[in-house]
Amino acid sequence: MSESETTPTDRSAAAPDRPARADARRNRDRLLAAARDAFAATSEAVPLDAIARAAGVGIGTLYRHFPTREALVEAVYAAELDEVVSSATVLLGEFEPAVALRAWMTRYAAFFKIKRGMSDTLRAGWASGSIATPATRERVTAVIAMMLRSGAEAGSLRSDVDPEDVTMMLLGVFLSTAAIDAQDRAEQLLDLIVDALRPALEPKRR
């Protein structure tokens, strides 16, 4: 019998593993969602048992998926960064580039807020090497460059802007408003950044 062939007995024996794997994936997804919400709610360290309760699982299940706090934080960070990057293409498919860029800035702001709740663990993990250092800034700047190109082609965004400058402006907004927990002020500042990225209107001739 070839390796690709299985007897009915073989298939029935393997069947119970599939629901178990599906349950494990669901538990992992629930843990990541609960951790993301917990990290977004506070900049203080969140107890792991509180995250497990919020996910509706026991602490043992959490440790099976994430043996350490560092492992959980690294997984949440990676998932959120991937979502921030991939959301740009989705938004460009739904809105014109300037509107898409503004919506993406709000998504990036949410990521930054979640990152604050993980900052102590991230810094310690990056310093010790227990958490891989991600290319966050490079990936974010690449997204901004893509959206600026789309906007320049559509005529709704300037073509002479360095994407790295936009990244720096966004980080400045997030850091300055986080210190005083001023969400409304952050939104106003993001609006100003997008306005600054729009092409200047030609003066009307008399």
Rank of each mutant, 00 (worst) to 15 (best):
F111C: 00
R102F: 04
F111H: 01
I114W: 01
A98E: 15
A100C: 13
T106A: 08
A110I: 07
E94C: 06
F112T: 06
P97E: 00
R116C: 02
I114H: 00
M118W: 05
R116P: 03
Y108G: 04
V90M: 11
Y108L: 15
E96H: 12
R102W: 05
A103D: 12
L101R: 04
K115A: 11
K115L: 09
A109M: 10
F95A: 08
R116N: 09
K115E: 02
E94T: 12
L92Y: 05
M118V: 11
F112W: 08
T89K: 13
R107F: 07
I114S: 01
V99P: 14
F111R: 01
Y108M: 11
R116W: 07
K115M: 12
F95N: 06
E94L: 08
E94R: 15
Y108A: 11
M105Q: 09
V90Q: 07
F111N: 00
K113M: 13
M105D: 02
Y108S: 04
F112C: 12
G93F: 00
R116F: 04
G93C: 01
Y108R: 03
A100N: 08
F112Y: 08
I114A: 09
R107Y: 06
F111S: 00
G93Y: 10
Y108E: 02
L92Q: 11
G117V: 07
A100I: 14
V90P: 02
M105A: 10
F95C: 04
A98D: 15
M118R: 07
R102E: 12
A100V: 12
L92R: 06
K113C: 13
P97G: 05
T106W: 08
M118F: 09
R107Q: 13
A109V: 05
A98R: 11
F111E: 01
V99N: 03
P97K: 06
Y108K: 01
R116I: 04
T106R: 09
F111A: 01
K115H: 09
E96Y: 11
W104T: 00
W104I: 01
W104L: 00
R102H: 13
L91H: 10
F111M: 00
Y108Q: 04
L101P: 00
A103I: 09
A103W: 10
A103N: 12
V99T: 15
A100H: 11
R102C: 07
A103E: 12
R107M: 14
A110P: 07
G93S: 05
P97Q: 04
G117T: 10
G117S: 05
V90W: 06
I114K: 01
T89Y: 07
